[in-house]
Amino acid sequence: MLLCRASTASACSLALHDWQLKFFYKIPINAPFIPLSEIAVIQKQFNRAVTDRLFWAVKPGVLTPFNDFIISFIDGWVSKVKWIIVPNNKSVIKLARSFSNDENKPLIVGSDKNYLKIAVFLDANSNNNCCQIVLAQDSRIRCIFQDPNKPWAQEYSMESWFSLIFYRLPIPGYILSFSTYPIDGNRVALYEDHPLVETLLSKKMLMRRPDLVIDPYSFDFPDLPE
């Protein structure tokens, strides 16, 4: 799925949306559905493979049994190493110390304080016909790597998300874009229907973006509530 990335030029960047939050729900979850944030922070710190084992300390979630399968679709060296899911009943520091005598030190990643945020936005510029559904995952991520030369311990509060933008119905033929964040630290459009966007713009069913308008939320959505 992620290998089939759409062009980086965003179809929805042609339209000027005025996203109004219509529905929001936040629920605690055991584990992120897809460890996008975890992969992003590790790949930012290490641009090449530093180990062949990664211990992920997390409460097993709905999709954790399929973790290897899911992350195999993601680019980068982190998705190629073996992910070993361990329960997070002890701290990542203690977990890291248990490998002190190993010659091949693993990367230790802990994810907790996991939340799933579900948000629905309607575009006031299209008479609420254009809709965006956002699934965002919040996590506190703690990482430890016992590099003999440069050990690393860091904590991040990260958010990753998936966004589906469609016109009236979330069915094929009405979907404008499907995107995710972060992949290599960026938002990436996995699917975009340029002809559909152009058609809606020409029929004035979407508002065309003036060249001079710079809107920080133009490609994504307003900040989600805490």
Partner: peptide
């Protein structure tokens, strides 16, 4: 940060 990391592990 490096000193902290060393302390945490060792």
């Amino acid at each position: 940060e490096l000193n902290n990391s060393v302390a945490a592990i060792s």
